[in-house]
Design a binder for these strands. Structure first.
Lengths: 170, 170
DNA sequence: TTGATGCTTGCATAATCATTCACTTACCCG
DNA sequence: CGGGTAAGTGAATGATTATGCAAGCATCAA
């Protein structure tokens, strides 16, 4: 059945481009592309694709694909994977680094960090969606933050206040 | 109705801590916390909180709070109310601010702080009756502490007993 | 007070989504 | 071949979530 692959690919594309609000809606869009399927099949496709419904402005909610590239998994580096998946923001102040995650996920990331033996990281404390990391004096908060950002793939963002990368004291 | 605020706080906490799989499930958890509501009300709460259902390993899907700052419901007014109600003491040291609350209330306040998008506040970690807040280098612990005191209504001289700024334990 | 207005909620129900069951097809192995 | 197995699908149905509506309650102005 190559049509399943094809259909799911089209589902992904439709979700990415349009604001798909429901499965019947998606069914319709698929039909316009010459692909017919029942709502049941679409439900299964969405599950396999890891699609979720997110809320957008105005109370509407549309579908979106959760993670985009399942391809670039560094094999031996579980930390990188965890970081990439769960870390939303990395900021630093003094010799502390604050890592933000989705609610309830902090301990997962903190655990991974603790076990990583990252140089420059003395220890972590995890709350609900926030991790405080204590950096060594040698590396400093800024240096550690850069390491963590690199691991997680997030860009520098300090609450709207511009901050030069790596410009601070070490 | 202050119970709505309270309920939504609890919803946020429950979602963050447990794997809430459905609205009836959440209804049950709320009841254990002494909060009763119907599925309809919970549905509305989840919409207002921006909660979404995400898929996790094993085909399960659970609720999670979606985004961060944008379009959040009750910004500073709600924060001020929560702070006024539960914050007992605010002290700072370096770029850290320690907020004391009645036992068991720290999470509620920290959650409100986290979602407030307060300038100068990088993140929080909540224990049982203590919250540690990390201030940006620009604002600093003293500045943030002043903001928090202003929000909560407590004075620098907590409980009538003068207390030097930055004298707190860390 | 009285009436208007707006917010919150529960009830009933509609809308949406997931799953069970039965069927078909393709493939592998004896 | 023929049987067995696994994947994929649709129809029907069960489970879950959203919503229209009306009631209850607070606020405000006259």
């Amino acid at each position: 059945m190559s049509s399943k692959q094809q259909r799911q690919q089209m589902v992904t594309r439709l979700i990415a481009h349009d604001n798909v609000s429901s499965q019947p809606h998606l069914q319709e869009l698929l039909k316009e592309q010459g692909i017919e399927a029942t709502q049941a099949t679409i439900s299964r496709d969405l599950e396999e694709l890891g699609a979720v419904k997110i809320r957008i402005a105005g109370g509407e909610s549309i579908y979106a694909i959760a993670e985009y590239a399942p391809a670039r998994v560094a094999p031996s580096d579980q930390l990188r994977r965890v970081m990439a998946e769960w870390v939303a923001e990395v900021t630093s102040s003094g010799n502390l680094v604050v890592v933000r995650t989705p609610p309830g996920c902090a301990h997962v990331v903190a655990s991974a960090l603790d076990r990583s033996g990252l140089v420059g990281l003395l220890g972590t404390v995890a709350g609900d969606d926030t991790i405080m990391c204590v950096a060594t004096e040698e590396v400093g908060g800024t240096g550690l933050a850069e390491q963590l950002r690199s691991l997680s793939g997030v860009t520098d963002a300090t609450g709207g206040i511009p901050r030069k990368k790596g410009a601070a004291h070490v």
